[in-house]
Design a protein around this nucleic acid. Structure first.
Length: 270
DNA sequence: CTAAGGACCTGTCGGC
DNA sequence: TGCCGACAGGTCCTTA
């Protein structure tokens, strides 16, 4: 499900419900996610006030005085304020109840998501190697150009590598490459300096537009209040295999690149 | 070091 | 109707 815009949408929607609120209790129904949920979580959180809620890449960071709860939505995770906390379903793995009566629920059928903890002052290993935020000033044409040198991997794989730049997943990588006219299969080292500039701008633009629309709901993404995102109707290539390119009319093709389906236009993307 | 592929999971959809 | 394989928003880890 979630790439940067969906995680950002989740974050923005959650804030007004839970910021500065004290945790009353934590219920872990099923601790086996990508990594086990720390056993002591139900003990170290109650009574603590949530100070800030941040995003780093696709990770959500819940900060307390004594440490940070780190949460990733994986492929199918959802995080939302639940209306009726008494009832729950098969994949409702974690509930965090706040003293204002709101319950934050983490639901994740495929369990590729994770809930972790880092003590105050420590950086979790998963976060320490992440590349720059795509919407920050440090993500520039010059930066991407340097990273593309001497690399044979397809440019699409490169921009989906969180050590290069965070937050770009399968949907927005395809969209950004279409917008910048670059063939996703092109080896990184063959991408020109000028194209790196176009690509960086396209990544920033598509992510910003998607955030404005509340993210992309393909199947089950929902924001903190259970509402879908509306960027799906703006998608120009993703999931449009065999349909007409909206720029030139040619039939869009689909190829596997690094195990992931990739739709693009062979005449617009060189 | 780079690059490729497998692994982790459940749910859904299309084809036979 | 039912079964089976392919595929899905991610990314770490192992292997070559």
């Amino acid at each position: 499900m979630p790439e940067l815009p969906e995680v950002e949408t989740t974050l923005r929607g959650l804030k007004r419900h839970i910021i500065n609120q004290k945790i009353q209790s934590v219920i872990v129904r099923f601790p086996k996610l990508r990594w086990p949920i720390p056993e002591n979580l139900t003990k170290i959180l109650p009574g603590k006030k949530l100070l800030t809620l941040k995003r780093r890449g696709k990770y959500l960071l819940f900060e307390f005085t004594h440490g940070t709860l780190i949460l990733h939505l994986g492929m199918s995770g959802r995080l939302y304020i639940v209306k009726d906390p008494i009832s729950f379903n098969k994949h409702d793995h974690v509930d965090i109840q706040f003293s204002n009566g709101k319950t934050l629920r983490f639901t994740d059928p495929r369990r590729f998501g994770c809930v972790l903890w880092a003590n105050h002052g420590e950086t979790h290993p998963l976060l320490s190697k992440l590349g720059p935020e795509p919407l920050s000033k440090t993500f520039t044409a010059e930066y991407l150009w340097r990273k593309t040198r001497n690399k044979k991997i397809a440019i699409k794989n490169l921009i989906m590598d969180a050590q290069i730049v965070v937050g770009v997943g399968n949907i927005y990588a395809a969209e950004a490459l279409f917008a910048s006219g670059i063939n996703p299969t092109k080896p990184s080292l063959k991408v020109t300096r000028s194209d790196c500039g176009k690509l960086v701008n396209a990544i920033k633009a598509v992510l910003q537009k998607a955030i404005k629309k509340g993210g992309t709901t393909l199947r089950d993404f929902a924001n903190a209040d259970g509402k879908p995102g509306y960027f799906k109707q703006e998608l120009l290539v993703y999931s449009r295999e065999k349909q007409a390119c909206l720029r030139c009319g040619a039939s869009l093709v689909c190829r596997k690149i690094g195990q992931r389906s990739t739709v693009y236009c062979r005449s617009c993307q060189k």
